[in-house]
Every structure is written in structure tokens, then in C-alpha cells.
Simulated assay, not measured.
Amino acid sequence: MKSSALKAALAGAAALAIAVSINAPAFAINKTSKNCIYRNPDQLLYIENYQGTNQHCFANAGFLNGLAIYGVNYIDPGRNRVSIWYYETVNSPSQSRMILEPGRPYDPYPKPPIHAITAIEIF
């Protein structure tokens, strides 16, 4: 009797785990170098710093914290809605946040480049 109840409980737990894992969306931003160019054909989130010396592209929905992208002079959200956390200047007392809509790039010119991006979220 105990054995059959245990088997039923384990089967139920396994079925629940499978159902939850199948329906759970994946939230993982990936940094990619494929087609990471200005106006990239894949419409990825594109961040350019140091006047185009470095390019950073990100794909897939999710949140990525702990970034340190300095001297940002251009951000193109591509086909994504994105949220960017950043420090405007080296002496900024707190982080700021901007939301960019698809197809609406951000170019700080004529102001100086953004000091540092610390986190991004792709919706």
C-alpha cells in the first residue's frame, strides 16, 4: 500500500515538473557577434561605444545585470522594446533608466557619451 502511494506521488510530481517546464518561457539574453553591425539585418539590440570602436549586440528577451559598457555613443533597440540602466556621467549620484521603443535609436550627441551602461532588459 505504501509503495503504490509513493509511486503515485512521484508520478504526480514528475508530471507537474514536466508541465511547468514546458509552459515556462525562457528568459535569457544572449550577447552575440553574428551580424553585430550598425543597422544590423537581424534587428538585434545594438550598443556602440568609443565612437564605433566597439559594438555589442544582444538577442532574446530577459534581463542582464552587471554590465560595464563605457563611453556609449549610440543605442539601437532594433525590433525590440528595451530598458537601459546607466550612469550619465562619472559623477552621477544615481543610475538613470531609459526605455527605447522598436526602431527608435538613442544618440546622445551633442551631449557627451553615456558614462556606463550597467543593465539591460529586452521585453
Rank of each mutant, 00 (worst) to 15 (best):
A5S: 08
L6G: 05
L10Y: 11
A11E: 09
G12M: 05
A13C: 05
A13L: 13
A14D: 05
A14P: 01
A15I: 00
L16I: 10
A17V: 08
A19H: 07
V20L: 10
N23R: 13
F27T: 04
S33T: 15
C36D: 12
C36A: 10
C36W: 14
R39Q: 13
N40M: 09
P41I: 07
L44I: 05
Y46F: 15
Y46L: 10
E48P: 06
E48M: 15
N54E: 12
Q55D: 14
C57W: 07
A59I: 08
N60P: 02
N60S: 04
N60D: 13
A61W: 01
F63M: 02
F63L: 10
L67I: 10
L67Q: 09
G71P: 07
D76Q: 02
D76F: 00
P77A: 03
R79W: 05
N80P: 00
N80E: 02
R81L: 12
R81V: 14
V82Q: 11
Y87G: 00
Y87T: 00
Y87N: 00
T89A: 04
N91H: 09
N91W: 02
N91S: 02
P93W: 07
P93S: 09
R97P: 01
M98T: 14
I99G: 07
I99S: 13
Y106H: 14
P108T: 06
P108S: 09
K111T: 06
P112M: 15
P112Y: 15
P113V: 02
I114M: 06
A116E: 14
T118E: 13
I120R: 10
I120N: 11
F123A: 09
F123G: 06
F123I: 06
F123H: 05
